[in-house]
C-alpha cells in the first residue's frame, strides 16, 4: 500500500513540475509573437517614409549604436544596424586607416564639387580611365558604391553614407559570410601582434575594390636539392606499369 501511495504522489509531483516548466515557455512564445508584429510594422514604416533619405553615419561607438536601437527613432538606421550585428559581438578591433594616407585622389570633392553628376552608364575616358571595373560581372556602376551627392563617402544599398575607412560595411552587404570571418579573425590580416591591441587591414588593402580577385604572382625560388641527391620529378618512376617496363626493356630504353 505504502509503495502505491508513494508512486502516485511522485507521479503527481512530476506532473506539477512539468506544468511549472511549460508555463513560462508558453508565455515566452506569445511575447515573441508580439515582437514579430512590431518588427513588421517597423519595416512597413521604413518602406514608406525614408527610402530616399540619406544619412551620414560617422564613426560610431558601440554605446551610441545601442542608444539608437532603444530610441526607435529612424527606422532605416535600425535596418542598417542589423547589418552590423556581428560587429558588436566580435572582439574589439581598430583598422589601419587608408583614406588620407593611401587614396591618391582623396578628398574626391575637390574635383567633383564643380562637376555635374552624369548618371549615364558609360566608359570613362577623361578621368579614372585606368580603373578596370571587373567587380560584379558588369552589374555594377560607379554610383552603385559611391555617393552621387557627396563623393567623399561610399554608399550602402539603402543609400546610407559609409566612410571610406569603414568600407568593410559596404563589402559586407553582399560578402556577409566573409565579413563575419573578418570580424572574428578567420579572414583578413591582423597587423603585427597576436595578443593585445587588435589592428586589422581593411578589405581594400589586399583587394582592389574595382577588380577584387587576387592576381597570380611569381613564387619565391624553390629549395635546393640536398647535396649528393638528384631531383627526380614525381610520377617518373612510380607510375610506370610493369608491362611498360617490359616494353622499355624490349626497346633497350632505361628505366629505374
Amino acid at each position: 500500500m505504502f509503495k502505491i501511495r508513494l508512486i502516485t504522489s511522485s507521479g503527481l509531483l512530476v506532473f506539477a513540475l512539468i506544468l511549472f516548466y511549460l508555463n513560462p515557455f508558453f508565455s515566452g512564445q506569445t511575447a515573441s509573437a508580439t515582437k514579430v508584429s512590431d518588427a513588421a510594422a517597423n519595416t512597413a514604416e521604413d518602406n514608406t517614409e525614408s527610402a530616399d533619405e540619406t544619412k551620414i553615419v560617422e564613426e560610431e561607438t558601440e554605446s551610441e549604436s545601442d542608444d539608437s536601437d532603444e530610441e526607435d527613432g529612424d527606422s532605416s538606421d535600425v535596418v542598417f544596424e542589423k547589418l552590423l550585428s556581428y560587429e558588436k559581438y566580435a572582439p574589439k578591433f581598430s583598422i589601419k586607416p587608408r583614406k588620407e594616407a593611401e587614396l591618391e585622389n582623396f578628398p574626391c570633392m575637390d574635383c567633383h564639387e564643380d562637376e555635374e553628376t552624369n548618371y549615364n552608364i558609360r566608359l570613362l575616358e577623361e578621368d579614372h580611365e585606368d580603373y578596370k571595373l571587373e567587380h560584379g560581372a558588369e552589374r555594377f556602376w560607379c554610383l552603385t558604391c559611391h555617393q552621387a551627392d557627396n563623393r567623399d563617402y561610399l554608399r550602402s544599398l539603402k543609400n546610407n553614407a559609409i566612410d571610406f575607412d569603414q568600407s568593410y560595411r559596404l563589402c559586407g552587404q553582399c560578402h556577409f559570410q566573409r565579413q563575419k570571418d573578418w570580424f572574428f579573425g578567420a579572414h583578413g590580416k591582423r597587423i603585427g601582434n597576436w595578443s593585445g591591441e587588435r589592428k586589422l587591414y581593411l578589405c581594400t588593402e589586399c583587394h582592389d575594390p574595382h577588380s577584387p580577385s587576387i592576381k597570380p604572382l611569381k613564387p619565391n625560388p624553390p629549395p635546393k636539392v640536398r647535396k649528393g641527391l638528384v631531383f627526380v620529378p614525381n610520377g617518373t618512376h612510380i607510375k610506370k606499369k610493369v608491362w611498360q617496363k617490359y616494353l622499355m626493356d624490349q626497346t633497350g630504353e632505361k628505366h629505374d
Binding site: P216, L217, P222, P223
Partner: peptide, 13 residues
C-alpha cells in the same frame, strides 16, 4: 607522397 615542393612555375597558383 605525390606532392611536389620543388615547384617553380612562372606564376602561382
Amino acid at each position: 607522397e605525390e606532392s611536389n615542393h620543388y615547384y617553380d612555375p612562372e606564376t602561382v597558383p
